[in-house]
């Protein structure tokens, strides 16, 4: 990973990026105005939130939906819209936190 402020001698040539997927280290959660809350007790594990999330911010653990990655969730609300009515396991609320990140 290229260090911030690195000089030209210390970075790979030509803009080559050698750390695949390192965007995951970049926080986009502070873009959020509304935050989804996942209610595990209502979740039917249909994975629709996972497949429709633009930000790959639905966490999956041991083959199950396990919550929201608030470090990256931008709060678009697609997951809550697409969560089946019968489950209603994701709800949107105004994000009251600091504009910083709550993980």
């Amino acid at each position: 990973m290229v260090r911030e402020g690195a000089g030209w001698r210390d970075i790979p040539r030509g803009g080559l990026i050698l750390s695949p997927g390192n965007a995951a280290r970049y926080v986009t959660g502070d873009w959020r105005t509304f935050r989804p809350t996942w209610h595990p007790e209502r979740c039917i594990q249909c994975f629709l939130c996972w497949v429709y999330c633009p930000d790959a911010a639905i966490e999956v653990k041991d083959g199950k939906v396990a919550g929201v990655d608030y470090k990256h969730c931008k709060g678009c609300g697609i997951c809550a819209t697409e969560c089946p009515d019968k489950a209603h396991a994701l709800t949107m609320e105004r994000d009251e936190g600091e504009r910083g990140v709550e993980v």
Binding site: E4, A6, W8, R9, I11, G14, G15
Partner: peptide, 11 residues
């Protein structure tokens, strides 16, 4: 602007 110039300097 944070790295383009460095890459041109390399060139």
């Amino acid at each position: 602007y944070d790295f383009y110039f460095e890459h041109k300097r390399q060139q």
